[in-house]
Design a protein around this nucleic acid. Structure first.
Lengths: 242, 242
DNA sequence: TCTGTCAACTGGTATTACAAGTTAACCATG
DNA sequence: CATGGTTAACTTGTAATACCAGTTGACAGA
């Protein structure tokens, strides 16, 4: 308290690089909807000309946008804006996260937290349309189970849970859950095989979903919540024993 | 079901770019702890030589690592590995997220979800050390309030909540909460001023924390949970009325 | 109608060069 | 001896250029 340093604090000065300025302008254009998803982005050479910078600088900015999943670049074609999707980003980071002990189990726990909250929000916002959507996902899963198609079953599984999250009307919850799903897909254990292939398990998963659906349809949200919890406990069990 | 396409599915072939190979190798080295936080990374020219690629390719990979917050690059100095920290990433993405209607309120709701879960986990894992840590954060806040230092108060505020999350022993919960905090710092409303400067409010916030702390110390976790809920309701109120 | 060809794009990569910042050793000055 | 200035050898930042490779669309030919 007796020194100058405690009154006047010097903040480190950090000069920003050109690619950051480009990023800033670009992101601003996107949020101002000057560019919309699906639009083609000017070529790198044009951008360099427009920004009065060199092509490498433009490219460094594009690399970041690519990792964020805000643009899709095809060699020779061009770059297109798309809805932000953090898959590529997760692809880079996943190995770091999974190098932690028990990360996958923590992830399952976190998923439970998200889904429980989603059900709570459903109690406030659920519409008849939401119920219809859930039914559709459920039927797809039933079909997958009866035709014994494990891949389709897994797809229908995530579709059901995704619908649940969408019905919660919470943008953040949806996006975070998307991240969790992306992470599971990058799970280290034997590649992408969170997919449960044993027939009895698939049937049991379907039944769980069915019960959750029925509880929601009857607007018994507390019951639905408990069903979600026990459902995920079962998933966890299947998971730990491979 | 009658066509070849339904049996044999052709997956699109997507050639990976050089910078992605570099990223992959680099991340692998990090998770294998060949490189550790604090270490200096070889210069761009050395890396280019080692990877048998050109310097621009190396730079594109470094830009991604920089945004991920895995390395820190100082012009003329060099690049250093650090603990992954998604601040820079959030800095790029934040404007996009906050361009959504009511994103900030959704964020507060999400924060509530995280903290409630943290308290639930505390019921299982809390140690005496955790209680001590909480007390320390609390005392810092008390000091900030009594000396009427709003900036220190805000710092102590987040420190208290951060300690809460750390005590939950959940790595994911901590990291996600860090993201939420970073996002709040980039909040559009009047710059960085989630900081509540009114003296009475600061006092009330302190009292809330005090009550939460006492409940936790006495291991009354249900009570603590309810206190957290009402505390965040109050924060929400302060927030919506600027 | 289909198929191949070709020219004019596009992004991917490499090379080279220079500007600008950092670091450490050294030297001069008080 | 300590401080500050100078310098040389690094480093990253940016630019310019060239060439390869993939894409696209128009057009000619079967």
């Amino acid at each position: 308290m007796k020194d100058v340093q405690s009154d006047i604090r010097f903040k480190p000065v950090a000069p920003r690089k050109i690619y950051q300025y480009i990023l800033e302008q670009f992101v601003q254009m996107v949020s101002a909807k000057v560019i919309k998803p699906g639009d083609k982005i000017p070529s790198e050479r044009e951008l360099a000309l427009a920004f009065h910078v060199s092509r490498p600088s433009v490219r460094e900015a594009l690399r970041v946008l690519e990792i964020i999943g805000l643009i899709e670049v095809q060699a020779g074609g061009g770059a297109y804006l798309k809805e932000m999707e953090l898959g590529p980003f997760i692809g880079v980071v996943a190995p770091l996260l999974f190098s932690r002990e028990n990360f996958d189990l923590e992830l399952l726990d976190f998923r439970e937290t998200l889904e429980i909250r989603a059900v709570e929000l459903l109690a406030q916002h659920m519409t008849d349309d939401d119920v219809t959507m859930l039914k559709t996902s459920l039927d797809a899963m039933e079909h997958a189970v009866s035709t014994n198609d494990p891949e389709a079953g897994a797809t229908a599984d995530v579709a059901f849970h995704r619908t649940l999250l969408e019905a919660s009307k919470s943008y953040i919850l949806q996006k975070v859950m998307d991240l969790v799903v992306s992470l599971f897909e990058h799970s280290v254990r034997g590649g992408r095989s969170i997919v449960l292939e044993r027939r009895e398990d698939a049937r049991q998963l379907y039944l769980d979903h069915l019960h959750i659906y029925r509880a929601l349809r009857n607007r018994e949200f507390d019951k639905a919540r408990n069903l979600v919890v026990s459902h995920l406990q079962m998933v966890r069990q299947l998971y730990v024993m491979h």
